[in-house]
């Protein structure tokens, strides 16, 4: 009887044993895309947390160096000249083009029922609130941010950063602080200039291309103007002027692995800076315009 029962169960047992053996594999196979996604999110989250933490420490040490009077002012002036004066031509070209294009496109849209003088308001608000700060930041990422990462990264891989440490100098104080403070100081000035140049280019383009006189353009601009917009624009400039050199210095100091490493760090730095600028730009309206 027992044998018969055993024989009867055998075919059932075998598939069951197989099922229990295969079950984890099937479950694993079904869940593997989710597990991969969770692992990926975890890895990215961890990486963001590490970068954010390191940049927080970097920012703190820069502020601390500034208040302890340890910042090398000669280097600060060199960086301010490089970031400010030398960036001016490119910033102005970008501002002129943004003012002209906004005016031309606005003029094309407002030709039917909307009074054309509204164009003055649209161009002014567009340049001051968005195009001036963001396009200047993009120019600074390409011209200044990438250079800083490549420069500090090269110093890292050629042991110059170690040499600074060995000579009792702190690279964050010697290299980081002058660049970050120079960014904070020059960016608002550049954005203010970009705003003025962009609006002026809009006025000229409106007169020449759209047929809107200077008086009408400025009337429209004044009609919806808020002084707060200027504060908003400069506040963005201060934020971007801090974020760009902070990320570029941080990525430069993290560089490893020779010339290839410098290339990788510079590319990653530019990507991080663009994302950081666009994300912080998106955070401004809900924080400051509501």
């Amino acid at each position: 009887m027992a044998d018969a029962l055993s024989a009867a169960w055998r075919p059932l047992r075998l598939p069951m044993r197989c099922a229990t053996r295969k079950e984890p594999a099937i479950v694993e196979m079904l869940l593997s895309p989710f597990v991969a996604v969770v692992r990926g999110v975890n890895r990215v989250g961890e990486s963001i947390a590490v970068h954010a933490g390191e940049m927080g420490i970097l920012a703190w040490r820069v502020v601390s160096a500034l208040f302890r009077g340890k910042m090398p002012y000669r280097e600060f002036l060199t960086q301010a000249y490089s970031m400010g004066i030398q960036s001016l031509p490119l910033v102005c070209v970008t501002a002129i083009l943004s003012g002209v294009v906004t005016t031309q496109q606005g003029g094309y849209q407002f030709t039917s029922s909307i009074p054309l003088y509204v164009l003055g308001s649209v161009v002014t608000a567009g340049v001051v609130l968005e195009l001036g700060p963001v396009l200047t930041a993009i120019v600074m990422i390409g011209r200044v941010g990438a250079r800083i990462t490549a420069e500090i990264g090269t110093m890292q891989v050629s042991e110059q950063i170690d040499a600074l440490y060995s000579l009792g100098r702190d690279p964050i104080v010697v290299l980081g602080a002058p660049r970050i403070i120079a960014g904070l100081v020059t960016m608002p000035a550049l954005v203010a200039i970009a705003n003025v140049v962009g609006i002026f280019a809009g006025v000229v383009a409106a007169e020449l291309d759209v047929g809107l006189g200077r008086e009408s353009f400025l009337y429209g601009a004044r009609l919806f103007w808020h002084s707060y917009d200027l504060f908003y624009s400069i506040a963005k400039a201060v934020a971007f002027g801090f974020v760009i050199p902070l990320i570029s210095v941080h990525m430069g100091l993290r560089t490893r692995g020779g010339a290839e490493g410098v290339g990788r760090a510079t590319t990653a730095s530019v990507v991080f800076m663009i994302i950081a600028i666009l994300v912080s730009d998106a955070m401004f309206p809900p924080l400051f315009l509501d």
Binding site: M155, S158, A163, L167, G168
Partner: peptide, 23 residues
């Protein structure tokens, strides 16, 4: 500490393999 380490490093001269001069 960081300050102490800087103080220690000032007592030491280090000659790097590739000189590590500031460009």
């Amino acid at each position: 500490s960081r300050e102490k380490l800087q103080e220690i490093r000032r007592r030491v001269g280090y000659v790097f393999q590739n000189a590590a001069l500031f460009d």
